[in-house]
Nucleic acid binder design. Sequence first.
DNA 1: CATTGATGCACAATCGGTTGCGCATTCGAT
DNA 2: ATCGAATGCGCAACCGATTGTGCATCAATG
Lengths: 339, 339
Amino acid sequence: MVEMVRLKDVAARAGVSVSVASRALTDDAHARISADTRARIVAAATELGYQPDHRARALRLSRSGAIALVVPEVNNAIFGGLHSGIQEACQQRHTAVLLGQLNASDRSAQALSRLIGNGRVDGVILQRAEDYDDASLQAALDIPVPTVLFNSRLSGRPGSVVLDDPAAVRIAVEHLRELGHTGIGFIAGAAHHDAAARRLEAFTELMAGEPSHPEWTQSGGWEAPAGHLAMSRILGLDERPTAIVVASLNAAVGALHACAAAGVRVPDDLSIVSIHDAWIASYTAPELTTVRMPMVEAGERAATMLLDHLDGAELEDVVLHEPKPELLARGSSAAPTHR
Amino acid sequence: MVEMVRLKDVAARAGVSVSVASRALTDDAHARISADTRARIVAAATELGYQPDHRARALRLSRSGAIALVVPEVNNAIFGGLHSGIQEACQQRHTAVLLGQLNASDRSAQALSRLIGNGRVDGVILQRAEDYDDASLQAALDIPVPTVLFNSRLSGRPGSVVLDDPAAVRIAVEHLRELGHTGIGFIAGAAHHDAAARRLEAFTELMAGEPSHPEWTQSGGWEAPAGHLAMSRILGLDERPTAIVVASLNAAVGALHACAAAGVRVPDDLSIVSIHDAWIASYTAPELTTVRMPMVEAGERAATMLLDHLDGAELEDVVLHEPKPELLARGSSAAPTHR
DNA sequence: CATTGATGCACAATCGGTTGCGCATTCGAT
DNA sequence: ATCGAATGCGCAACCGATTGTGCATCAATG
């Protein structure tokens, strides 16, 4: 427990008034301070180990120096990368990151505003929950601070960073086609989530020339149980696809588990490719072939946009094309066995 | 974007001064306010949707109303539960939770103090990184706010919540013994982490009567690669145990993967029981038998202790005996096959 | 009826840092 | 030598809430 040193102490040590000390330390552009005085103040500050009090600064500047990251589920595979990227960008801009998990239980419109309090954070990065419909999302965003949506967008409300979902799906499908698959199914995310919709749409377009198999496309959710259920339904069909693209990694883990439970061998009987990558993909049996998405970069982009906006820039709707989604071929995909 | 309503506005609407409004809304015990006035103020506050500005309150009270949760790795299985518990306890006490990940890259002593800033949080809950030795930990804790350690303790520095590690290990070992196993190995955590040490010690005591097999105990770390490596070493031995207790879930996933890679069948050739439970344990092949630890409760306890301390209570060193660790028998443990 | 005490409220200082403005001094130009 | 401008610094207001203290008003008491 160290004693707190205030600006007053620094000023006293340098033999100046508090106001000059403040200007010297904040690099005020309008400041007219002699080089000598400035040096004395800086020296005094470092000697005393001065750190400005965030509370006072926040009050005066009406900036709390913190943003909130609100996610539906911290266990989701994408959370780690997203958080790293945001943390990284924020650290450089001297901003703290508050974490909020918005449980399924309290999805009321005020839940978010309670979470961020009044003046607690300057902005919010929100990962849309899979069971938020557009109206709920709009209602939840009725908060007095700007928001950037991650992998979701809302018409008429700028401020979003979405991944290149069509490219990811295309890469997965092309990989399977190169292996020789013609019958490809799709396990999608929640029906009314726009990221899930984009992936589904991309998949549908890619399948345009193929014989139609609507039952090979199953909507579910992003977590493992949903993936398990969707895969179970597909495995119950009379005529099965030989390969499946799964729209999220946790769901792919669930899907893989369903295969194991049903005695379906992966990749011999069925190939699986998942969108998103995380450590767990290298530790399943078989290891999961995935399309790595630039989550860290997406987090950085979202945080940067939010912080820039706080400094006056406009919010935008960004599609993150670079770095490109990348195929990580592992053991869950192989050429189909013709019988 | 809603307009901000200040206490001044509430006071004006109720026809009183700001000070009375403040006392009325904070339930000041010394306050002498007529019931009528108080009602008018409360009414005005709700009508205007008044929410006190956290920045101003923080400055005046020297309390920021936030605590930091600092973890080495958000992908670790225990993080989700821990965070939920802390969040839960903090929400009731109107406290926000800042998340900090202390990367392996910046393990300097100032990293933590930079993270929490000056006056940004009132306290810290710290999950010790597996590569922190006692001295580094002590140095990192040289911050001007109180700290509660999770699943770690430091002599001479009260403030910790640790799980009932010996009980967990005993439950795992007893389960394996009931199945008929006599040769039991152990994959421990990082050597100098005290939680790992407690689990290892408990294991050693339980093995006191058995023939000694020091090479059946492998120290590593808490993440999957460490578990993989440790298991590989054990599988390379001439004489193998028939069952393994793994000290953490992520490491168990890694260990299971090593078995699959080596063609060792689980549980036929080798049983695995892991300490800690999370969703992934139900989705591996085979599903992992685990000992569920009360992570949510531990988080609640740690947060409550910290918040109580901020209100004047003493910090304690708590061992969380209730709820007890619970065996969740799944597919990775079975009776040994005698050949 | 005068005095004491309790009651209900407002004034103003305060937390620590930021910033508009004013004052004094020095400098350059005529 | 004189005047205007530029420079260097301090004073004081302010951000929004909390809180010690003081001033009225009214009831209770002898």
